[in-house]
Amino acid sequence: TIDDAFRAIERAIQAENEGRYREALKHFLDGGEMIVTAAEKEASQKVRNLLLHKGKEVLEWAEHLAEWILE
Rank of each mutant, 00 (worst) to 15 (best):
T1K: 07
T1D: 08
T1I: 11
T1H: 07
T1Y: 08
T1P: 07
I2R: 03
I2T: 04
I2N: 03
I2V: 09
I2C: 10
I2F: 05
I2G: 03
D4G: 06
D4S: 07
D4R: 11
D4N: 10
D4W: 08
D4Q: 09
A5E: 03
A5Y: 05
A5N: 01
F6G: 02
F6E: 04
F6P: 00
R7W: 04
R7S: 06
R7P: 01
R7L: 09
A8G: 02
A8D: 02
A8I: 13
A8H: 11
I9P: 00
I9S: 00
I9L: 09
I9N: 01
E10F: 12
E10R: 15
E10L: 12
R11S: 05
R11H: 07
R11A: 07
R11M: 11
A12N: 01
I13C: 13
I13V: 09
I13S: 02
I13Y: 05
I13T: 03
I13W: 09
Q14S: 07
Q14F: 06
Q14R: 11
Q14H: 10
Q14Y: 04
A15M: 09
A15V: 03
A15S: 04
A15Q: 01
A15H: 06
A15R: 02
A15N: 03
A15L: 14
E16D: 14
E16S: 15
E16C: 15
N17S: 13
N17H: 09
N17L: 13
N17P: 02
N17A: 12
E18N: 08
E18C: 12
G19C: 12
G19K: 03
G19T: 05
R20T: 00
R20D: 05
R20E: 03
R20V: 02
R20F: 06
R20S: 03
R20L: 06
R20N: 08
R20K: 07
Y21R: 03
Y21M: 05
Y21E: 01
Y21W: 12
Y21L: 06
Y21K: 01
R22A: 09
R22Y: 14
R22Q: 11
R22D: 08
R22L: 14
E23S: 04
E23Q: 06
E23A: 06
E23R: 04
A24H: 03
A24S: 03
A24R: 03
L25R: 02
K26C: 14
K26H: 08
K26N: 05
H27A: 06
H27K: 04
H27C: 09
H27M: 13
H27Q: 07
F28W: 15
F28S: 01
F28A: 06
L29A: 03
L29H: 05
L29N: 03
L29D: 00
L29F: 07
L29P: 01
G31K: 04
G31T: 04
G31L: 14
G32V: 15
G32K: 06
E33P: 04
E33L: 14
E33K: 15
E33Y: 14
E33M: 14
M34V: 05
M34L: 13
I35G: 02
V36M: 15
V36E: 03
V36P: 01
V36W: 07
T37R: 15
T37S: 12
T37K: 15
A38M: 13
A38T: 07
A38F: 11
A38S: 06
A39Q: 03
A39I: 09
A39K: 02
A39L: 11
E40S: 12
K41Y: 12
K41C: 10
E42A: 12
E42L: 11
E42K: 04
E42H: 11
E42F: 12
E42N: 07
A43E: 10
A43V: 12
A43P: 13
S44Y: 08
S44M: 10
Q45G: 09
K46L: 12
K46Y: 12
K46R: 10
K46I: 14
K46P: 07
V47M: 14
V47S: 04
V47T: 08
V47K: 07
V47Q: 05
V47D: 04
V47W: 10
R48T: 01
R48E: 03
R48G: 02
R48Y: 06
N49W: 10
N49V: 06
L50Q: 08
L50E: 07
L50P: 01
L50V: 06
L51M: 04
L51H: 01
L51W: 06
L51G: 01
L51F: 04
H53N: 12
H53L: 15
H53T: 13
H53G: 09
K54D: 01
K54I: 15
G55K: 04
G55D: 02
G55Q: 05
G55V: 13
G55E: 02
G55W: 14
K56C: 13
K56D: 02
K56N: 05
K56G: 03
K56W: 11
K56P: 02
K56T: 04
E57S: 07
V58I: 13
V58K: 00
V58Y: 08
V58C: 06
V58M: 06
L59E: 01
L59F: 12
L59P: 00
L59H: 03
L59Q: 06
L59R: 07
E60S: 10
E60D: 09
E60V: 05
E60F: 07
W61C: 08
W61E: 01
W61F: 05
W61K: 04
W61Q: 03
A62E: 00
A62K: 00
A62I: 08
E63M: 14
E63A: 14
E63D: 07
H64A: 09
H64P: 00
H64W: 10
H64R: 12
L65E: 00
L65M: 05
L65N: 00
L65A: 03
A66Y: 12
E67A: 13
E67N: 13
E67F: 10
E67G: 10
E67C: 13
W68L: 10
W68S: 03
W68T: 03
W68Q: 05
W68A: 06
I69Q: 01
I69N: 02
I69S: 01
I69A: 03
L70D: 07
L70K: 12
L70A: 12
L70V: 11
L70I: 13
L70N: 11
L70H: 09
E71N: 11
E71S: 13
